[in-house]
Amino acid sequence: MDIKQIIKEENQVYRRTPLMTEATLSYCPGCGHGTIHRLIMEVVEEMGIQSDTIGIAPVGCAVIAYDFMDIDMSQAAHGRAPALATGIKRLWPEKYVFTYQGDGDLAAIGTAETIHACNRGENIAIFFVNNGIYGMTGGQMAPTTLEGMKSSTSPYGRNSETMGPPYKITEMVAQLPGTYYVARHAVHKPGPVRKAKKAIRQAFENQKLNKGVSLVEFVSNCNSGWKMTPNDSNIWMEENMFKFYPMGDIKVEGKLVNGD
């Protein structure tokens, strides 16, 4: 069959969602941010809630997420997205409110806001992109940087004795009573992408229940910060990051999956 006969409107099975704007993404080639943006917008499109969704952009690589997502968005001071989301959700409890944050934003500068928003059980969704590094500012060490991992401020690898060990804020907040759904996913391959999309959908659906925070972590690559090609960084992520940050649900319907 000729290709021209295949490429017709009625045969289309996948296209970029129109909820992503025409602006070219500012991310490096191969960065997971673009995929996660698109997945969130696909879920918003499928649920038909474009005019009822309010997103909060963080500080970091995703600081201009409002240029790429065709929904109402605001942008918070560094790490303060959960506080801003709290205010917006309390004013408009019927709206779907989500924050989109990186690990420097959520796990370092915004630790207090994250923990207290999760502890209060605000009815918001938090999307947390963890690439183990401060990507935008030049690859400095973050709290989530793995032990032995090289970054521009730990050129000989992270040493736990002097720099402290990496920490899993996702498991930490899962212990708090205010979180309702906590999961960790990745977007480096088609299978994980489809699972991640289901988790995003779950996080949005949970807002109808008014039961607390839904937090989805995405372990992502930072090929520029890690000084690798996109494919090499994805392989490195599978071999190293996934050991420390295992995939899967951590808390479902307010109950810890490994019920201890």
Partner: peptide, 27 residues
């Protein structure tokens, strides 16, 4: 290799920039 394509959409769902549109027909 256009003759290999099955229209599985795997390329499109992992594309970070969403540049791929997929078409599929069944024969």
């Amino acid at each position: 290799n256009p003759e290999n394509c099955t229209g599985c959409t795997n390329c499109a769902v992992v594309c970070p920039d969403g540049v791929i549109t997929v078409y599929r027909v069944k024969q």
